[in-house]
């Protein structure tokens, strides 16, 4: 295998890695907010369930969770779902990251001074106006550094997809390395991950800067 074929095969894997990455963010960033809000629900049972969910998601290895989502339906219920590998993968990633984002959001929401809510109340804002117009924009600014951390971790965590033998860049690197008895694929994978995170840092920095206009 020439270096060029190696790189182009792995670039295709990197595309799949990017797919996991993008779908996880698209699913978990909003879902995390839903979880964070339910975590503060008026109904104690809802709060309890959400707390349990967050504990489990954060307290067990993501790799194990991926295996459960993939094999669970068959071993637990005898269901045979066609083409389940990729959906199980995304489900596992989205739920796991939603739990982490939920805790980040919760911290962000709790850091907003109560005076902001009171000012809104006196001015006659509805609850949803208060949240959307006043609280959320400030929360987003406050949590940006933590979100950046989590996104960078996600880039690297996508490699856990190898557990389900999904052909993303890390799985491919292992395969090609074994078949070609070469160390090169790992080096290439490392460079790919590094570049990806370099881009993430640039983009997140831009976003953080765009919110620098106030303190």
């Amino acid at each position: 295998m020439t270096l060029t074929t190696m790189i182009s095969t792995m670039a295709a894997g990197m595309l799949r890695t990017t797919g996991i990455f993008a779908l996880t963010l698209i699913g978990s960033l909003p879902l995390g907010m839903v979880v964070a809000l339910l975590r503060k629900s008026r109904f104690a049972p809802v709060r309890g369930i959400i707390r349990g969910f967050i504990s489990i998601m954060r307290g067990t290895p993501l790799m194990l969770q991926l295996l459960v989502w993939y094999f669970g339906p068959y071993y637990l219920f005898g269901w045979n779902i066609g083409n389940w590998r990729f959906p199980a993968l995304i489900l596992g990633f989205v739920l796991n990251y939603a739990a982490y984002f939920a805790e980040i959001y919760r911290g962000g929401i709790e850091s907003i001074p109560v005076g902001q809510y009171e000012a809104c109340e006196v001015l006659g804002y509805t609850k949803s106006q208060t949240f959307m117009r006043v609280i959320l924009p400030q929360v987003i600014k406050n949590i940006m550094p933590s979100v950046t951390n989590e996104v960078i971790t996600l880039v690297k965590d996508t490699s856990l997809a190898f557990t389900l033998a999904y052909q993303e860049v890390f799985s491919l690197a292992k395969q090609i390395s074994a078949s070609q008895t070469s160390f090169m694929p790992f080096l290439i994978a490392g460079i790919f991950y590094f570049i990806a995170n370099y881009l993430v840092e640039i983009i997140m920095n831009r976003i953080e800067k765009s919110m620098d206009y106030y303190k």
Binding site: P113, G115, V122, K141
Partner: peptide, 13 residues
């Protein structure tokens, strides 16, 4: 009614 707070509570953003 309107209320002016001791801590202003302006919207920083």
């Amino acid at each position: 009614c309107g209320l002016v707070f001791q801590q202003f509570n302006l919207f920083p953003h």
